[in-house]
Design a protein around this nucleic acid. Structure first.
Lengths: 332, 332
DNA sequence: CTGAAAGCGCTTACAG
DNA sequence: CTGAAAGCGCTTACAG
């Protein structure tokens, strides 16, 4: 099996020292044009590729970043992951991906392993109540970007969607379209600090001039099945219910299925609003009204924040809040 | 910022040589139980984590693998990626993810960068006609697993779904349910060698006792939009068409939408069969009949193949072919 | 059972 | 403009 080509091999072939090859390869300057030509020629000819392990050992820059998320099963996530990967590559970094199943212990394992691999930073969709774990790594010197949660620490930045505003928009939209009896199906996986969709829903109800008050906020698994079960419960307990705000689009789709299977028409009898605007949402029948989260923008903000943390460790970072948008389709 | 803890720090604290700490950490044997205890204690106390860059430089095992795919936008892919990541972690490896947009040049870039990072192997969903690129890396010593294509080289293994058989099953199912005039919407992104769905479709038509012959095989982009456009064309040219086999579920969903928008009922007027069984397929109306590809099994086979290639470079590998299954729902 | 020496492939800090 | 020396954090090959 052919041994890998090293800096030495290039140096020997050209007849210069490895140091000179290193200078040319990294474009440090301090070499003649003639030398540059000869070195680059040899690099090309031998197919030399710098060994990032060796380079990283010295420079303390491995050229890698880690993306840590609950998993790919949430249809919201893959496009974000792809966007981050693309942006990272444009900045010359290669991306690790590791899933946590939203389990704090697994997240701890994953971070340990990424730290071992000397990643230059991580982007984390945090598992339940793992802010301390994350600020711990940040304090040890690892640049950390947290999505959809808040924390303060050196080497740490936060990027969030304005989900509270989004939830309020969704709720006002239901009220504006003459829905009287609203319920919400929230997520059983959100700790109190991250229940901003619930806060937005309740706030919009309070602030509405309609004098309406929510029937119930239910917490279910944020899946199609969770949405189905939630909707059945709500219809059972509150037959008068005519509007639902769902934690995400999967839940909303489940809610619509359950409503239909119980003989309720959507939107005529019950209106449903989701959150995320996953691809599926425009394809189901009726097409889902939802809060659109700009995933490419999230990818860009998050990568930028990490980049800043890596390149300018000292500079203070303020939390980024990404505005969201109501997309009205057929389910309301 | 606290410097990273090294083997030396542990050694100093315990009062042994770094070599001894290394032995304990890697569980090589050749140390007393007392030493082991003391070392592990210090490791724990100092929070020592081995630096994989340094280790990899010597052992020529970086403990990383690369997953290279077209992208996350195809809903078939994310679950596979997640499965591979999980299996890789179980084997103690961390996974890079890099997308190619199915572009050979980008795939070349991606492989170059993974090679630079000294990955122990790669799993590739190859871009168009890049078999030579891949066998090239395999010959240079990089373990490569190719999905859904065939090639021969040292350090190379292939894992495929039996899509030809799947297509044939789908087609026979259409014929068995008394469809007479069949068309197929294939993918414009598949090079001839990878058109096994088309081959299966045509073979089943030929072999059927019904004496039927296909109206047309159209090649479109494998997306919902591609499916819509394809269906419109087929209905336009062959108004009698009553059965469609689609390249994948997205195309099938697009085809159903176009059919409905032209006033054709699914399945009464036109039956549609997809391929992949993505999550969405059971949620659309009518629920889609499709060829199910066992994604967890693919993840397992592919990771196993790569593992074998890494651990036993010499041993011959025969291509793995994964059987597929017809799932009958409402669209036929 | 334990350790001193050498070196993986690079870059840093220096000297010329 | 160029190079010799040292060293990043670890393991390999050896000696005791």
């Amino acid at each position: 099996m052919p041994r890998e080509v090293t800096l030495r091999d290039v140096a020997t072939q050209v007849g210069v020292s490895p140091r000179t090859v290193s200078r040319v390869v990294n474009d440090e300057g301090g070499f003649s044009e003639a030398t540059r030509q000869k070195v680059l020629e040899a690099v090309e000819q031998l197919g030399y590729q710098p060994n990032m392990l060796a380079r990283g050992l010295i420079t303390r820059r491995s050229g890698t970043v880690g993306l840590v998320g609950g998993g790919m099963t949430d249809p919201f996530f893959p496009a974000v992951a792809e966007g981050i990967q693309r942006k990272a590559r444009e900045a010359g970094r290669t991306m690790f991906f590791a899933s946590t199943d939203s389990d704090p212990a697994r997240q701890a394992d994953v971070l340990k392993s990424l730290w071992s691999h000397a990643v230059d930073g991580v982007i984390v969709f945090p598992a339940l109540d793992t802010i301390d774990q994350l600020t711990g790594y940040a304090r040890r010197g690892l640049p950390v970007v947290i999505v959809d949660d808040q924390a303060e620490a050196p080497n740490l930045a936060c990027v969030s969607f304005d989900l509270e505003a989004g939830a309020a928009m969704a709720t006002r939209h239901l009220l504006d379209t003459r829905r009287q009896s609203l319920g919400m199906i929230a997520s059983s996986l959100s700790p109190p600090r991250r229940r901003n969709r619930e806060r937005g829903f309740l706030r919009a109800m309070r602030e509405s001039g309609h004098g309406a008050s929510p029937l119930e906020v239910l917490r279910m698994l944020p899946t199609v099945e969770g949405g189905e079960a939630g909707m059945r419960q709500l219809l059972d307990r509150h037959p008068e219910i005519d509007g639902i705000f769902a934690y995400n689009d999967l839940v909303a789709i489940g809610a619509m299925r359950a409503a239909k299977s119980q003989g309720r028409r959507v939107p005529d009898d019950v209106a449903v609003v989701g959150c995320d605007d996953i691809d599926m949402s425009s394809l189901v029948t009726p097409a889902l009204t939802t809060i659109r989260l700009d995933r490419p923008l999230l990818s860009a903000e998050v990568t930028q924040a990490l980049h800043d943390l890596i390149e300018a460790p000292g500079s203070p970072r303020r939390p980024v809040m990404i505005p969201v948008e109501l997309v009205i389709r057929e389910s309301t």
